[in-house]
C-alpha cells in the first residue's frame, strides 16, 4: 500500500526536462533580441525562413515558444503521473487524479455521453493555451498573442465541428444550414465566422493586455522622469514608479485573463462540437442500421 516517498532520479530528470525548454527559449531571446532603447511593441521575431513551394515558411518566436510549452507540459504530465497505480499515497498522483476527474466531469456535463472520449483533447487545449499565456510571467513572447498560432487551433476545432456535422451524411449537413430556408446565407456566414471569432477573441484579449501593459509601463517611465527628474545623476533617470505598479496590471492581464481565455476557448470548443452534432438523427441512423 505504502508507496515509497523517495525522490527518485527519474523525477529529477522529468523536472529537468520541464525547465530546460523554457530556459533554452529565454537564452535564445537574450542572445538574439535586437538591442532597443526604450519600450517598443513588436510582433513575433522571425528566426529563419524555409523556402516552400508556394510561400516562405517562417519559423518565428511564437512557434518556438509554443513548442517549448508543449515539451514542458508533456514532461509535467509525465512527472505527475509516472508510477501511478491504485492505492498510491503520493501527493502529485492525487493532484493528477483530481485534475483528470474534474475535466472528465466537465466534458461529460457540457458535451454529453457520446463525446466522453474528448476530455484529453480538451485538457490539451486548456493546458497549452493557459501555459502559453502564462509565458509572459518569465518575460517571453506569449504564443497566444500571435494570430497564426491561435488561428491554427481554431481551424483544428472547425475541422472537428464539420466532421461531427458530417456524421449523418452530406444531406443532413446541407439541410442544417437551411433551417429556416431564408436564413441560409446568414447561417453559412455564421458558420465561417465561428473559427474567426474564436481566434480573434483569444488573440485580441492576450494582445490587448500586453499592449496596455507596455503603454502603462511607458507612461510610468515618463511620469517618474517628470517627478524625479531634479535628482542628480543616475537617480534622475531611474524609473522609480515602474517598480511594483505594472505588476498589479500583470495580475489581471497575464494571470487572470490568460487563464480565463484558455477556459473560454476550451468551453467554446466543447459547446460548438457538441452543438453542431445532430445527436437524435445519428441515434436513429445507428438503430436503423441494426
Amino acid at each position: 500500500m505504502i508507496a515509497s516517498r523517495k525522490f527518485k532520479a527519474i523525477d529529477a530528470l522529468y523536472i529537468l526536462f520541464m525547465i530546460i525548454p523554457i530556459l533554452a527559449v529565454i537564452l535564445l531571446k537574450i542572445f538574439t533580441a535586437p538591442s532597443s532603447d526604450g519600450i517598443s511593441i513588436t510582433g513575433a521575431m522571425i528566426f529563419f525562413e524555409i523556402n516552400m513551394p508556394f510561400q516562405k515558411l517562417f519559423i518565428t518566436e511564437a512557434q518556438l515558444n509554443s513548442w517549448a510549452v508543449m515539451i514542458s507540459v508533456t514532461f509535467l504530465c509525465l512527472y505527475m503521473t509516472h508510477g501511478i497505480r491504485a492505492g498510491t499515497v503520493l501527493k502529485r498522483h492525487h493532484f493528477a487524479e483530481i485534475i483528470a476527474e474534474k475535466l472528465q466531469s466537465m466534458v461529460a456535463a457540457n458535451m454529453g455521453e457520446y463525446f466522453s472520449g474528448f476530455s484529453p483533447f480538451i485538457a490539451a487545449i486548456l493546458l497549452l493555451s493557459a501555459f502559453s499565456s502564462l509565458l509572459t510571467l518569465v518575460g517571453l513572447y506569449p504564443p497566444t498573442s500571435d494570430l497564426n498560432v491561435v488561428a491554427g487551433w481554431a481551424i483544428l476545432v472547425f475541422i472537428l465541428i464539420t466532421y461531427y456535422k458530417f456524421k449523418c451524411g452530406p444531406v443532413v449537413y446541407v439541410k442544417s444550414f437551411a433551417n429556416p430556408p431564408l436564413m441560409a446565407p446568414l447561417n453559412i456566414i455564421s458558420e465561417v465566422a465561428t473559427p474567426v471569432s474564436m481566434a480573434f477573441r483569444h488573440y485580441g484579449n492576450v494582445l490587448s493586455g500586453s499592449v496596455i501593459s507596455v503603454l502603462v509601463a511607458f507612461g510610468l517611465q515618463s511620469l517618474s522622469k517628470m517627478i524625479f527628474g531634479f535628482l542628480p545623476g543616475f537617480l534622475g533617470n531611474f524609473p522609480f514608479l515602474q517598480i511594483g505598479i505594472p505588476a498589479v496590471l500583470s495580475i489581471y492581464f497575464d494571470i487572470f485573463s490568460g487563464c480565463l481565455q484558455a477556459y473560454i476557448f476550451a468551453m467554446l470548443t466543447m459547446l460548438y462540437i457538441s452543438g453542431g452534432f445532430p445527436a437524435e438523427l445519428y441515434e436513429k441512423k445507428i438503430q436503423g442500421g441494426n
Binding site: 471569432s197 480573434f200 477573441r201 485580441g204 494582445l207 499592449v211 477556459y263 473560454i264 467554446l268
Partner: peptide, 20 residues
C-alpha cells in the same frame, strides 16, 4: 456570466484587431 461576457466581448475585439 463569464462565458456570456467573453462572447459579448467579440465585437469589441474585432474593433481592436482593426485598430491594431
Amino acid at each position: 456570466m463569464l462565458m456570456g461576457c467573453a462572447i459579448a466581448e467579440t465585437t469589441g475585439l474585432y474593433a481592436l484587431v482593426i485598430a491594431i
